[in-house]
Amino acid sequence: MRAFDYVRAGDTAEAVREAGGAETRFIAGGTNLLDLMKLEVMAPGKLVDINRLDLGGIEATGEGGLRIGALVTNSDLAADARVRRDWPVLSRALLAGASGQLRNKATTGGNLLQRTRCYYFYDRGEPCNKREPGSGCAAKDGMNRILAILGTSEHCIATHPSDMAVAMRALGARVEVEGQGSGREIALEDFYRLPGDTPHIETVLEPGELITAVILPPPAGGRQIYRKVRDRSSYAFALVSVAAVVAVENGRIAKAQLAFGGLGPMPWRDADVEDALVGETPSAALFDRAGDILLAEAKGYGGNDFKIPLTRRTLAAVLTQATEDDQ
């Protein structure tokens, strides 16, 4: 770990003010940042501790949604009675992530900004464009079982590893941020960036911008499912995950909000897939077609080729379950 300056901010304004420099990072639960700092994969010159900020509440919004403070822990958010009742896909996604100990520490803001678990990103002995722009990508021709098949570039094939963010993407969440001078809201679909030739820049956040909350729109209703497929029963990142909010009316699909984890550099959502489903009668053939559309551009890199059939099958199973007559 490199020596760094440390400031504990008392309120949002102070946090944003202190975070002016390019070398500065906020620290929340620290469950990702500290690991990366110990390995010197990340080496901020200054940490602004935001744990004293008043961002720990979950409140109803005027439009009937929820405003989740950036410091709400993954455990608390998963256990919130409103979330469990009206946005159950979010609760399930959270509980599918990490371990109890980590969820107690991990925060909503930190979870959105956690970095990839690409093996080579963690290893300073290896080339990695995300860690060291221009050094190359060791994963492309190396071990890439856990990496992405959608949205990759020749410069980086990393996935975004979050479960929480996948559910939030399916729910159409927005991210509330506070920067120097002013705040703004960013739809989650606009929040992350594709790697292109700058895989080290992962979001549209400006340096020093602080996430203050995540806004959930009013309850989406329908059946909500989070299915996570991984290499052991618990405590492993998703190989593929599907967050689904699906409603059937009069035998036809009336709503299909689907987001995917483990596939791309961001929680993945594809409007064409949803459009193909809405208005149709559920059937195996339809679900296959949805898979075709989702995976039309999918590209495997050897070790992760299996994610293509796995995604297709998992999606079909989730859609089947979501559209079954009784549950």
């Binding site: 678990r117 093996y119 856990i146 052991r232 029963s233 405590y235 492993a236 990142f237």
Partner: peptide, 9 residues
């Protein structure tokens, strides 16, 4: 995290 020993579940 990535060398997968069996966990309780």
């Amino acid at each position: 995290a990535e060398y997968h020993l069996p966990v309780n579940l």
